[in-house]
Design a protein around this nucleic acid. Structure first.
Length: 281
DNA sequence: CGAGTGCCCTGACAGC
DNA sequence: TGCTGTCAGGGCACTC
């Protein structure tokens, strides 16, 4: 959304969306200018300029306000009116595409303003790990993070704390590629430097390859040009339960971990000593 | 406080 | 044909 940089927001208001933390403080956006369009993990961050800290007192008012957008599963930012499920409408200054629409069928997304840029209003942002495609994501730092938790490695990856931006599909793919069982306790994985290196590499490779292919379209996702992402065809594990593992030929399995469908090879993704805990949904 | 559970929400799809 | 039930998942509230 490069066309947003420098634009002034006339008004941002909820349409078919409830009042609450997912759509908080939208009134603060009015009159401010979008200074940049940035990204942290799966969150879009749009720093705003134009409101002085003493205009509206708030707890951590030392920084500039930030407009936060998370697309959830089905969210989309568009310049033309959506057919239904319109959650937020944002009026911009005159010019091309003067209205930004946030459509979100399943309401898993969010669209809010952080007063003073206080990330603590969004816990996942406040505790988010380094960006995987930058030099900030180091093997040492990753290993240190893994030593901080005993939860299953997949669960921990999904928490966004050891590294930013890894969702359910890419967690399964990275774990398959690095031959790590998804239920391996994070701390135990950290005991093997070689495994940590492999997973660290796999996360970067999977994300880079997916970006190259314009992402993964299961149903709703579209690129900024309205096209489907082609990475679906590159998936080795996700959605391939029952199919032969492309590495060893064993039949891939599907289970539930952290409440998410989890796909893995029972042969080359070595199971941890402790039993794999699954639960029904 | 760390860890585990279940909710939110709607459309697609299977089964009868 | 039309109904009912199940499944999909990012983030977080809740409980222990």
């Amino acid at each position: 959304m490069p066309w947003l940089t420098g634009r002034k927001i006339v008004e941002a208001r909820r349409v078919d969306a409830p009042e609450g933390p997912k759509y908080a403080n939208l009134d603060l956006a009015a009159g401010q200018r979008i200074a940049a369009v940035e990204r942290r993990g799966k969150f879009l961050l749009l720093p705003l300029v134009g409101r002085t800290a003493n205009e509206v007192p708030h707890a951590n008012g030392d920084g500039q306000d930030i407009l936060v957008i998370h697309l959830g599963m089905t969210g989309i930012v568009r310049a033309s009116p959506p057919r239904g499920h319109e959650r937020v409408r944002m009026q911009l200054d005159a010019g091309t595409d003067p209205v930004l629409y946030f459509q979100d069928v399943r309401r898993f997304g969010r669209f809010l303003v952080l007063p003073g840029g206080d990330l603590n209003l969004v816990p996942t942002l406040a505790a988010m790990g380094p960006e995987p495609i930058t030099d900030d994501f180091t093997v040492d730092g990753f290993a240190r993070a893994l030593r901080r938790s005993d939860v299953a490695i997949k669960t921990y990856l999904l928490s966004q704390r050891p590294v930013a931006g890894v969702g359910n599909i890419y967690a399964d793919e990275a774990l398959w590629r690095s031959e790590v069982h998804p239920a391996t306790p994070a701390r135990r994985l950290a005991r093997s430097r070689a495994k940590v290196v492999r997973l660290h590499t796999a996360i970067r490779e999977v994300l880079l390859a997916s970006i190259e292919a314009q992402g993964t379209t299961l149903n709703d996702y579209r690129t900024v040009n309205g096209e489907v992402g082609a990475y679906l065809e590159h998936l080795d594990a996700y959605g391939h339960e029952g199919a032969p593992c492309r590495r060893c030929g064993a039949s891939l399995r599907k289970t539930v971990l952290a409440g998410r469908g989890t796909h893995y090879c029972p042969t080359c993704q070595v199971a941890p000593r402790t039993p794999v805990r699954t639960r029904s949904r």
